[in-house]
Nucleic acid binder design. Structure first.
Length: 964
RNA sequence: GCCAGAGUGGCGGAAUUGGCAGACGCGCUGGAUUCAAAAUCCAGUGACCGCAAGGUCGUGUGGGUUCAAGUCCCACCUCUGGUACCA
């Protein structure tokens, strides 16, 4: 009695594929190429999550489908294995990170293979592989060797950097320092995100709401010397090139917002040498500027600000500089020194979290000095306030309270005058007179007032005019700014790539500030063995405790100290898609010919959580490699699709109050609960005992009345909600268990059947059961389950198909093919279910139809497909069988059903020939028994006919004579 | 607060873009098979009224456009994600 038994057939075919290297990709594509990539997993200690196989199955279906359509498919897999979580796990389990990482990779590999993905496993890599690290470090040296030429908008070799004569005169050291100052990889002393909980600094992208993305530890601002990558130089191109990419609008928008391009003007306000500049000094400064023009770098005489609204210059009633601004000291008058000092100290002590969450009320302090507004010669007071950030624009602003909400709040707080310079007109929701009187703030565009010669200009025109005027006067210029900050690239942890950089030491053994990249021939710089690599909460990296011979290499008689920071987790994932093309190359990171043949990635699938991290960083590295001639495309990932998140099964929640009030009732029913906290809310998930396990309530323990769920037979209201899978909620689904119980093909099929690929959707174990039943039904459609041996069902015969059978078959081929092309996997499966429902009822099932069906199903359920393909009498794998093609001529039906509406409501249905004429169709509709009564006594005004779809009669209803 | 996306039976979800709402699956009900059960097969299954034929209502809420609205427009509510002094 051979039933469908995945436990037998799945390992069998997995072994077959491995033995025959069925999915080995050619070195170079033969014919049309297709590079399909999954976001490689981070091999955590928990093993694969059911979220992983969702994307992996989607790419696998696409690959298997396209292989059958004759394309050369590259479909690799690897592991992103450096970084914090792996290291934390290693510490927790007290194993060296390399050992625990390798164990985790082994688990992941076993699980991935168990799911039957058609990866070319000969290309597998991990970012922690020494040979991989070598090339990650090599790419870093390329970044180190590159400066960004803003005129050409291109990264160029550092020895092409023009050195100013003055620097040259200072000697070789000065030249080297000047170069270091321009490299894409450089060191900086800026304020960084220091996370004591993790014992490392973090990139801006890794800080969310003032907490670390990993672990949610608080993050504080600290000045520390760190390695940075000059991603801001590429901000313009990173934004622009999004245009040509086939990504979802959502992800593009998120990247655009993160890059945060804005255009406006930089304007110099005269501050002179004294704290209250005089009019005559201002006048002479202004006339000097008219001839000298706007300097690239401002001197001490001016305070340079950035604004997106140069049209509101006349409304600037005060200025603000950030507490960290270099002019704070010299602009502070003696009487204000103490107050300013106190304020700046407070601001420095504030964490990012304090600055944002406690930002309800504006704070600030007056410096006592004034600047002169270049457009009208007015003196305006200069304040210090932490609502201005040192890291954006010039760290200083002109404040226009009438037309900027933040400035308005500040002005109200400190009683500063408000002058309206934009008349918003009679717009809805705007109190025009209040705005003009300065008692309300309006940020909308409008027409200029109180702006001297500019009065009457519309905002856009004003901006253009004043931009030109400022340029001519040498007091300002158009400027573009980005929210994006340079990428903080070093970490004070052990488990990452060591920087291939050496610090030159002087005779006393101290670094002299000179850097030397490690020679490419000496790469990789491997991690040394450390007995203790644990973080200690201080910013000194653990590699500082490395053995002397590692830490202090001697080259050409010179002693160096190695850089002891390590690279962040993101380094390895920035270029892995390139290494997959040529994973064993020992002379280059990728062979140029192969790179050209396979790139770009045609389909990239992964979670949306990488929108501003991995996807931004990888694009940046790719552009640098492109500029330096190492890759042939400007963008790495042509088409990107984000899979939706898979949530746990819905669970029943009650509020803490209800739980307390109903303790007794719940107890009597053997119901227990699990407390969960999310954000600031606390709820309790109701659970019950099953043996010695605690599981979720069953459906019949609840009931729905008037749209509200209650605990069955009680008045206790329940909220039902599907949440992210987490151990604390007890709703994590383990793929191993699913495969054991239902098989890999069922898991794959279910993940695709759950709903739209990009939608968030809840897990349901009975849904897995449903697709498993479908596979069993499909098995029985072809195989005789009652026989002792593996024989075909007697209905499966080598005969021609009937017209109806052909129609069903070709309809299915057509639908499944186009659904796979658009990643509409759920509906493709529904169509195949319909096919099985139809053919199970056929007493004769043409073998050819069964074979075509098996081919259609095989990308979804590959083990099932291979097994039946072989039972249908084929000797080899079906992986390269031609994909079934549909023939439209089989799809035509002899009669079609047309709905007939009267006044837009369905009143009848008629059977007609598909090619019926309009007139005949109307006549047939009128004649229909169900339709007739609705037309009687009501004159037809209009008839709407949509050929092949419907007929709709628009009638004049005669109210006086109701129809009988 | 701002910016996206979503809200469809008891549940997961379909719906060629304005043309028969609820495909497909789960669950449920009834029947067949069985000593019995599991499995399987068949039928039914949005709500309400009706013996029935049939009718009325129905895609978060309220309005609108249209012969026709889940789909388009306006206002609002709820949920999910992103973002948060970026001048």
């Amino acid at each position: 009695m051979p039933r469908y038994n995945p436990a037998d057939i799945e390992p069998k075919w997995q072994n077959f594929w491995a033995e025959h290297e069925t999915f080995k990709a050619p070195e170079l594509p033969t014919g049309e190429k297709l590079y399909v990539l999954d976001m490689f997993p981070y091999p955590s200690g928990d093993g694969l999550h059911v979220g992983h196989p969702e994307g992996y199955t989607a790419t696998d279906i696409t690959c298997r489908f396209e292989r059958m359509r004759g394309k050369s498919v590259l479909h690799p897999m690897g592991f992103d294995a450096f970084g914090l979580p792996a290291e934390e796990y290693a510490i927790k389990t007290n194993t060296p990170p390399r050992v625990s990482t390798e164990q985790n990779i082994e688990t992941f590999t076993r699980q991935l293979k168990m799911l039957g993905f058609s990866y070319d496993w000969s290309r597998v890599l991990a970012t922690t592989d020494v040979e991989y690290v070598r090339w990650t470090q090599w790419i870093f040296t390329v970044m180190f060797d590159t400066w960004f030429d803003h005129d050409q908008q291109k990264g160029r070799p550092i020895d092409e950097l023009p050195i100013p004569g003055a620097v040259k005169l200072e000697g070789e050291q000065a030249v080297r320092l000047y170069q270091d100052d321009h490299r894409l990889a450089f060191q900086s002393d800026a304020l960084v995100n220091w996370c004591p909980g993790l014992g490392t600094v973090l990139a801006n992208e890794e800080v969310i709401d003032g907490k670390s993305e990993r672990g949610g530890h608080p993050v504080e601002r600290r000045p520390l010397r760190q390695w940075m990558l000059r991603i801001t130089d590429y901000a313009g191109r990173l934004e622009q090139d999004l245009e040509g990419l086939d990504w979802s609008d959502g992800i593009k928008r998120m990247q655009r917002e993160w890059i945060g391009r804005s255009t406006g003007a930089e304007v110099d306000f005269y501050v002179g040498r004294s704290c209250a500049p005089s009019n005559s000094n201002f006048a002479s400064w202004k006339s000097a500027r008219a001839t000298s023009g706007f300097p690239r770098k401002p001197n001490d005489e001016v305070l340079r600000i950035y604004t997106t609204r140069p049209d509101t210059l006349h409304g600037a009633t005060y200025m603000v500089i950030a507490p960290e601004h270099p002019f704070v000291d010299r602009l502070t008058v003696d009487e204000q020194k103490e107050a300013v000092q106190t304020y700046c100290d407070q601001a420095a002590a504030k964490s990012d979290l304090d600055r944002t969450e406690l930002a309800k009320e504006k704070t600030g302090v007056f410096t006592g000095s004034y600047a002169v507004n270049p457009v009208n010669g007015e003196q305006v007071p200069i304040w210090i306030a932490d609502y201005v950030l040192i890291s954006y624009g010039t760290g200083a602003i002109m404040a226009v309270p009438a037309h900027d909400t933040r400035d308005f709040e500040f002005a109200k707080q400190f009683d500063i005058s408000v002058i309206a310079v934009v008349d918003p007109g009679e717009a809805e929701g705007v109190d025009r007179s209040a705005v003009l009187a300065g008692s309300e703030c309006c940020t909308e565009q409008g027409v200029a007032v109180n702006s001297g010669e500019y009065n009457g200009l519309a905002t856009a025109e004003f901006k253009r005019r004043i931009g030109d005027d400022l340029t001519e006067q040498g007091t300002g210029k158009q400027a573009t700014n980005y929210k994006l900050r340079d990428w903080l690239f070093s970490r004070q942890r052990f488990w990452g790539e060591p920087f291939p950089v050496l610090h030159e030491l002087d005779d006393a053994g101290n670094p002299n500030g000179m850097l030397r990249p490690v020679d490419p021939a000496d790469l990789p710089v491997d991690l040394p063995h450390l007995d203790d690599y644990k973080p200690h909460g201080r910013p000194e990296p653990p590699l500082g405790k490395a053995p002397e011979d590692w830490l202090y290499p001697i080259i050409d008689g010179k002693r160096y100290r190695r850089e002891t920071n390590t690279m962040p987790q993101w380094a390895g994932s920035c270029w892995y898609y390139l290494r997959f093309i040529d994973p064993t190359n020992s002379t280059a990171f990728v062979d140029p010919e192969k790179e050209k043949a396979w790139m770009p990635v045609d389909l990239y699938i992964g979670g949306a959580e990488h929108a501003v991290l991995h996807l931004l960083y990888a694009r940046f590295w790719h552009k640098v490699l492109y500029d330096r001639g190492y890759v042939s495309t400007t963008e790495p990932f042509q088409r990107l699709v984000n899979q939706g998140m898979i949530l746990g099964e819905p669970q029943y929640h009650v509020t803490p109050e209800l739980l307390k009030a109903n303790e007794k009732v719940l107890d009597e029913r053997g119901i227990t609960s699990v407390r969960v906290e999310s954000e600031d809310k606390v709820t309790h998930i109701l659970k019950r005992h099953s043996g010695d396990r605690i599981i979720d309530l069953s459906e019949d323990q609840t009931e729905k009345r008037q749209g509200q769920f209650y605990l069955a037979g009680t008045e206790i209201p329940l909220t039902t909600r599907a949440d992210k899978m987490s151990k604390s909620r007890g709703n994590v689904v383990n793929p191993d268990e699913v495969v054991r119980e239902y098989g890999a093909d069922s898991l794959r099929l279910y993940e695709m059947f759950m709903g739209a690929f990009e939608a968030t959707k809840p897990w349901s174990m009975s849904g897995v059961d449903g697709v498993r039943k479908f596979l069993s039904r499909a098995w029985r459609m072809i195989m005789d389950e009652d026989s002792e041996d593996l024989v075909l069902h007697t209905s499966v015969q080598d005969v021609a198909a009937t017209d109806e059978q052909l129609r069903v078959l070709h309809k299915t081929i057509k639908a499944v093919t186009s659904d796979i092309e658009t990643l509409g996997f759920n509906t493709a499966i529904a169509r195949m279910m319909e096919f099985v429902n139809f053919f199970t009822n056929q007493s004769v099932r043409p073998k050819i139809a069964m074979e075509q069906f098996v081919l259609l199903l095989s990308p979804f359920a590959p083990h099932f497909g291979e097994e039946l393909w072989s039972l249908l009498g084929h000797g080899d794998t079906l992986s390269y069988e031609p994909w079934p093609r549909h023939d439209d001529s089989y799809l035509v039906e002899s009669t079609i059903e047309i709905p007939v509406q009267v006044l837009g409501r369905l009143r009848g249905k008629i059977q007609v020939a598909p090619d019926i004429s309009k007139e005949d169709l109307i006549a047939a509709a009128k004649a229909d028994d169900k339709v007739k009564p609705w037309l009687e006594g009501n004159p037809i005004i209009k008839v709407i006919v949509v050929p092949g779809r419907l007929v709709n009669f628009v009638v004049k209803v005669n109210r006086d004579e109701p129809k009988s």
